[in-house]
Each structure stands twice: as C-alpha cells, then as structure tokens.
Amino acid sequence: MAAHRRIDVAKVGEVTVVKFLDKKILDEASIQELGAELFGLVEQDNRRSILLNFANVEFLSSAALGKLITLDRKVKAAKGRLKLSNIRPEIFEVFQITKLNKVFDIRADDAEAISAFA
C-alpha cells in the first residue's frame, strides 16, 4: 500500500473509508497529489468499495471536483462503488449547482453510507 499525505485510509469491513487531511482542497499541487493517492486506491490497491468522508473539508475548488469525477470513472470501470458522506452545506451547494449530486451517491454520514454498500 502506498504512503498517503493527503488522505487517511481505514477499512470498515469491506469498505475503504477515506478522510481528507486538508481542510481546503484548492492548491493545484495538492490536488494533483490528492488525485494520485485516490486513483492509487483503485488502480494499485484494488479497492472496490470506497467511501469519501468530507467531514474535515471546509473548501474545495472545481479542480478538486474534476479529480472526484475521474475517480468515479475509475471506480465504475473497475466495477466498484464510490460514495460520499459528511459534506457540509456550502460544499453540498457546489455539488447541487453543478448537478454532481446526480453523479455521486451522497449520504449524510459514515453509518448510512457504509450500510448502503451492503
């Protein structure tokens, strides 16, 4: 398993729970690094059930959204499942405005998301 600088990775049963370590996901270099770490979960570690927990995230830019969309494609291509949880209202509004709430399976919290993988 690769070392991570942008994310914390834990396992709950079969589900890989990812927490973001940055409160603000906006710096281009950090976003590139974040993307590489997320993609590695699918492409190197063969994780197939991934939950992204946004509890720590206060801000993200459209470049970060791009990485999430690419991750979603990779997970779907690997016949895996991706869910998002604990998104604060301001950031959820970003998903709503861009209609990405229709692309991603967004759940209120970890417990709801993990049970939805079953």
Binding site: I69, R73, T98
Partner: peptide, 11 residues
C-alpha cells in the same frame, strides 16, 4: 455532467 473540468464559470 461527467467531464472533469468546465465548472468554474458556472460556480
């Protein structure tokens, strides 16, 4: 909808 970019102006 699933294009990785092009959301900045909309936001």
């Amino acid at each position: 909808l699933e294009a990785p970019n092009g959301r900045g102006v909309m936001l």
